[in-house]
């Protein structure tokens, strides 16, 4: 019986689930990570360091993961919506092989990353 006590206790303690604040923190962390990925892959593509197909697939994956995070915290935050839009523009640039136009999207995504950082800080202070 004792053998099952510790794992059981741990499961009981942890199975309570995440609080909404923890969910928000996790979602923001994921969003920041995938936004940074999109930026890095966009820059790498511009410099000719990664193939087109991989770039498209990674940008689409970034969109999907960010979308999942937005749904998880059920937010209508404008920056996050704009971020999705910017990622779509980047996908189009890669499809059209437009390496000049993607510069604008990369600047835009940098700005949005900063806004997400600021938003995350405010959320952190409020908790």
């Amino acid at each position: 019986m004792k053998n099952f006590l510790l794992p059981g206790l741990l499961l009981g303690l942890t199975a309570c689930g995440q609080t909404s604040q923890e969910k928000l923190t996790d979602a923001l962390k994921t969003t920041r990570s995938w936004a940074a990925t999109a930026q890095m892959v966009g820059e790498a593509w511009q410099q000719g360091n990664v193939p087109d197909r991989y770039t498209q697939q990674t940008l689409v994956k970034s969109q999907q993961e960010i979308d999942k995070s937005i749904q998880e915290i059920n937010t209508k935050n404008r920056t996050l919506q704009n971020l999705k839009q910017t990622l779509q523009e980047m996908v189009t640039c890669v499809e059209q092989h437009d390496k000049e136009k993607i510069t604008l999207s990369l600047q835009q995504i940098k700005l949005e990353q900063q806004q997400i950082e600021d938003w995350a800080k405010i959320q952190g202070e409020q908790s």
């Binding site: 920041r32 890095m40 994956k61």
Partner: peptide, 25 residues
Amino acid sequence: PRGITVDSYEQAALMLTQPFGYWGF
């Protein structure tokens, strides 16, 4: 430093592009 945490191999694939460029990929 870029704030990328590896949740998928697509992200990890970028690791060697900084030191080796296209051949890094």
